[in-house]
Computed example of a mutant assay.
Amino acid sequence: MRRIFAHLARDHELLLGAFLFGVIIFLAVFGRLIWPVDPLRVDVLNSLMPPSLAHPMGTDDVGRDVLARFIQGAQVSIGVAIGVTIAGTLIGGTLGLVAGLVGGWVDAVVSRAMDAILAFPPLILAMAVAIGLGPGILSAAIGVILAAIPWYYRLLRSEVLRLRTLMYVESARALGASNLRLIRLHILPQTTSTIFIQASSVFSFSILTLAALGFVGLGIQPPIPEWGTMITEGLAYALTGQWWLGVFPGLGIFALAVSANLIADRLRDIYDPKSGAQLSI
């Protein structure tokens, strides 16, 4: 962590990513206190109003405040993306640690299952799961988690295969250390930074995929605001001059995805500049 703060002072890309990410997080956490407007309140008489002091991001087709919906959309998108990232890390990372350390038929079976999942493009896989389970926030989250698990698995498995051959790990095993003790004391501490960097990339992937699912109607369902769904609702008015309906949620997705990718890229360069090809999704 001290190394990250030291780089912030001279790394403009990392500073820009942290700033953008911090602004979006600040809006998601404190936005409702700063702008205490009900995002579901309908006011047909003030529908499709352009940005103004009363409505800084304008209103939608039924008079709902776009800024209030943008803030709640940030809360929903970020909350689901964080949950997806944590779940993917725990499931995929655990499978990778166990398969890499135990080896044998366990490694073979789990690796073939991960290869089967990787045969599908991540977005197509997430869409297929959402269609099979039915549109909604839970099915969208499950689809994105399933798409993210193999990337954690491959990353952690490769790290374990490398670390298990090191002298101090072999010495600990020879002295009778269990697999759980090896993971807890000797392997997991060496992979923490790698997991964190991959989590940043998966967070960005989750934001984009959730927005894409919402855009095609398979994600979070109205009336709950979600950036992808808001863009879809704004498409009907894109040619009639109501640009603010789709532009502001689009900018939110862009800023959050770019900032997460910038942070992941710069952290990768700081901790392990040779591992860039592995840490992606």
Rank of each mutant, 00 (worst) to 15 (best):
P121M: 01
M127V: 09
L155A: 10
M127N: 00
I91C: 08
L90N: 02
G92D: 03
A130Y: 03
L182I: 07
A148K: 07
Y168T: 02
T192E: 14
Y168A: 03
I91V: 15
T191F: 06
V129S: 06
S178N: 05
G96T: 03
R157G: 08
L188G: 11
L146T: 14
A140H: 03
A108S: 15
I149H: 13
T94V: 13
S171Q: 03
A147C: 10
I149F: 12
R154D: 13
I137W: 08
R164Y: 03
L163A: 04
S204I: 02
F205G: 02
A81Q: 00
A140S: 11
I82R: 01
T192F: 15
T194K: 11
S171P: 00
T94K: 09
T85Q: 01
Q190L: 14
L188A: 15
V80A: 12
Q190A: 15
A130K: 03
G100M: 01
N179C: 07
G104Q: 06
A113Q: 11
I207D: 04
Y153T: 03
F205K: 06
G73K: 05
V129E: 05
V169C: 02
V98C: 07
Y152M: 14
V98Q: 03
V144N: 08
G79Y: 00
P122M: 02
L125A: 10
L155G: 04
S178M: 04
L175I: 00
T94Q: 09
G73H: 05
I187G: 08
R164S: 07
L156E: 05
V98G: 03
T85S: 02
A113H: 13
I187D: 10
D115W: 06
S77I: 03
A172H: 03
I142H: 12
G83V: 04
A199R: 06
I117E: 14
I91P: 10
M127G: 00
S178E: 07
G134P: 13
V106W: 00
A126E: 07
V202E: 10
S139Q: 12
L101Q: 01
L118I: 14
F205H: 07
P121Y: 01
R164H: 02
E170M: 00
L161D: 06
M167H: 02
M114V: 10
L146W: 10
F196K: 08
A113W: 14
P122A: 05
T165E: 14
A147W: 10
A128E: 06
T165Q: 06
I131N: 09
I183Y: 11
A128S: 12
L161A: 08
I82F: 11
S158Q: 13
M167T: 12
I142L: 15
G93S: 05
F120P: 10
A74M: 04
W151N: 15
P122K: 03
Q75S: 04
A148N: 13
A113E: 13
T165K: 01
D115C: 06
G132I: 14
P135M: 12
F203V: 04
W151M: 14
G73R: 07
L90S: 02
M114K: 12
S206N: 04
L95K: 08
L123W: 01
L90I: 13
L97Y: 03
Q190T: 14
S193P: 09
A81D: 02
S171D: 01
A141T: 12
V76M: 11
A147N: 08
A130V: 11
V84Q: 07
I145P: 10
L138I: 13
Y152H: 15
N179Y: 11
